[in-house]
Nucleic acid binder design. Structure first.
Length: 422
RNA sequence: GGAGAGGUGGCUGAGUGGUCGAAAGCACCGCACUCGAAAUGCGGCGUGCCGGCAACGGUACCGAGGGUUCGAAUCCCUCCCUCUCCGCCA
C-alpha cells in the first residue's frame, strides 16, 4: 500500500517508478480521488463540528431550563441531520474508492533495480559451484523406483500432487529439517509453527488480496490456505506497535504451502517442480527502515548458504522491475542447477518489501520517545523443499539409478548414504 | 455443539445518555528537593485523518459494523474475539 501523500507530493516520480515495471501512469487518477476524498471529509467535518457544538449548547440550555433556546438549537441540528448521512456516504465512498485503487498498485522498485519487462531482463549477480558434465535424465524418469508416485497422487487428489514413499519421503523430511535447523542455529531465526489457515486480513496485509485471490485455495468457512508461510509469519506483527529493542524480528517456519496454480496450465506439468501442495522453509524479517537493505543481503546469504552446504550449484539473480512480485521493492532469486533440465530453476526468492506490507497491515515500531513508524518487512525461501528434493535427486544421481545422499543430510537420514531403487 | 461471563489507553481498572479522549493507580518522561540516589512534590504522557509554515484548531476512535437520539464508551441489533463450565475430539 502506498502513502497517498507521497504520490500527491511527487506524482511524476511515482508514475516514472511504475513505468519501470512496465505499468501505465495512475498518479493523476489517484490524486483526483484524493482531492475528492479530502473535500468530502472537510465538508463532513464542518457539519459535524457544528452539530457537536449545538448539541453541547442544547445540554447547557436544558441544564439552565432555557427551553426556548434548546428548542431552537434542536431545530437547527435537525436540518444538519438531514445533510449529514449524505455527507458521510460521500466521504466513505471517496475513501473506499481511493483505497481500492491504491490496493491494486504494486510496490515501487528500488532505485538499484534494473528496468525490464520479464525474466529475460534479470541480471545474474553471482554464480557458485561446478556444473556436472554430461547428459542426465530428469527426476521423473528415474525417481519412480525410489518412491516417487504420481499415479497414486492423481487417483487421490488429481494433477499436480505427488506421493513420496520410503527413502524419498524421508529425504524430503530430512531436507526440511536440515533447513529449519540451519536457519535457527546459524542465522538466529526464531522457529515458528504457524496457522496454515488464515483470515482475509493476513492475506491482504501480505498483498495476496485483493488481486491474487484466484491463486490461493479458500475454505468453506472463508479462510485461506496459506500459499506461503510468509503470510502467517509476517502477520505476527499485524496491527502491532513493537518496541525498537524488539527489532529485528526474525522468524522461520517449515510449512506446507498451497497454490491453485491458476494460469500455469501446461507449465511444468512433469515432475515435482510445480505442485498444488509443497513444503517450504520460509524466512521473515521485520526491521527498522534503515536496516532493511542490509537485512536483505543477510537473508539472501542465509538461503545461499543452504545450497552451499548441500553442494548444489546455483546463481543469484537480481530481478528486473517487471519480473518482481507485487509487494517487493527489490528481489533476489536463487536459481539451482538442474542437470535433467540442463538449466537453472528458481529455488528461492528473497524480497525486501520496504514499508509496503507494513502499511497494509498497520505494523509499526516506536523509537525511544518517538511516534510509531512503519516497519520494513522481508521474506525469503530458505528454501523450497520440493525443488530442493528435485535438485538433490538430479545432482546426486548415479548411472545405476541410485542417488547419493548429500553429506550434510546423512545425519538426518539415520546414517543412510544412498537411496537405491526398489 | 450447549450454557454463561466479558472485550475501555503500554498495563491494571472506574465510568448515572450531555462539560468523557475518557477517573484513579502502575509504568514512562521532565522539573523541584538531594553531594548522588531512594522517597516525596509538581507537571507531562494515545492514535489516525483534515486544515495550518507553525503555534494550534477540527474530526474520528472505548473489539468491529449498523441503529436509536439534538447528543452514545454508556441504550438496541449483528458479527468477531477471549475466558469459564459441560459435551465431543488428535
Amino acid at each position: 500500500m502506498h502513502d497517498i501523500r507521497l504520490i500527491r507530493d511527487d506524482p511524476e516520480g511515482f508514475d516514472a517508478a511504475l513505468a519501470r515495471r512496465g505499468l501505465e501512469p495512475v498518479a493523476a487518477v489517484l490524486v483526483a480521488l484524493d482531492e475528492r476524498r479530502r473535500a468530502a471529509q472537510t465538508e463532513l467535518q464542518t457539519a459535524l463540528a457544528r452539530r457537536n457544538e449545538a448539541s453541547k449548547a442544547i445540554g447547557a440550555a436544558k441544564a439552565q431550563k432555557h427551553e426556548d433556546e434548546a428548542a431552537a438549537l434542536m431545530a437547527e441540528v435537525a436540518t444538519l441531520k438531514e445533510r449529514i448521512p449524505a455527507l458521510e456516504d460521500a466521504a466513505r465512498e471517496a475513501d473506499t474508492a481511493l483505497e481500492a485503487n491504491l490496493a491494486v498498485i504494486p510496490n515501487l522498485p528500488a532505485p538499484d533495480v534494473p528496468a525490464g519487462r520479464d525474466e529475460a531482463d534479470n541480471v545474474q549477480l553471482k554464480i557458485w559451484g561446478e556444473l556436472p558434465e554430461g547428459d542426465f535424465p530428469e527426476h521423473p524418469e528415474f525417481a519412480g523406483p525410489l518412491g516417487l508416485d504420481f499415479e497414486s497422487a492423481a487417483a487421490i487428489a488429481g494433477a499436480r500432487f505427488a506421493v513420496l514413499k520410503g527413502g524419498l519421503a524421508r529425504l524430503n523430511r530430512a531436507i526440511g529439517q536440515f533447513m529449519l535447523d540451519r536457519n535457527v542455529a546459524e542465522w538466529g531465526y526464531t522457529e515458528v509453527n504457524p496457522p496454515l489457515l488464515v483470515r482475509d486480513a493476513a492475506m491482504y496485509g501480505t498483498d495476496k488480496l485483493p488481486k491474487f485471490a484466484e491463486d490461493s485455495f479458500q475454505t468453506t468457512d472463508g479462510r485461506w490456505l496459506i500459499p506461503t508461510a510468509e503470510v502467517s509469519l509476517t502477520s505476527l506483527v499485524l496491527d502491532q506497535i513493537v518496541s525498537e529493542e524488539a527489532l529485528p524480528l526474525r522468524f522461520t517456519a517449515l510449512t506446507p504451502c498451497f497454490r491453485s496454480e491458476a494460469g500455469s496450465a501446461g507449465r511444468d506439468t512433469k515432475g515435482l517442480i510445480r505442485q498444488h501442495q509443497f513444503e517450504k522453509c520460509e524466512l521473515v524479517s521485520v526491521v527498522p527502515p534503515e536496516a532493511s537493505e542490509g537485512e536483505h543481503e543477510r537473508m539472501t546469504r542465509a538461503a545461499e548458504s543452504i545450497l552451499e552446504a548441500l553442494d548444489l550449484p546455483y546463481r543469484r539473480m537480481l530481478l528486473c522491475a517487471g519480473d518482481m512480485g507485487f509487494g517487493a521493492r527489490k528481489t533476489y532469486d536463487l536459481e539451482v542447477w538442474l542437470p535433467g533440465q540442463a538449466r537453472y530453476r528458481e529455488i528461492s526468492s528473497c524480497s525486501n518489501c520496504g514499508d509496503f506490507q507494513a502499511r497494509r497491515m498497520n505494523a509499526r515500531f516506536r523509537r525511544e520517545g518517538g511516534k510509531p513508524e512503519f516497519v520494513h518487512t522481508l521474506n525469503g525461501s530458505a528454501l523450497a523443499v520440493g525443488r530442493t528434493l528435485v535438485a538433490v535427486l538430479e545432482n546426486y544421481q548415479e548411472s545405476d539409478g541410485s542417488v547419493r545422499i548429500p553429506a550434510a543430510l546423512i545425519p538426518y537420514m539415520g546414517g543412510l548414504e544412498t537411496l537405491t531403487p526398489a
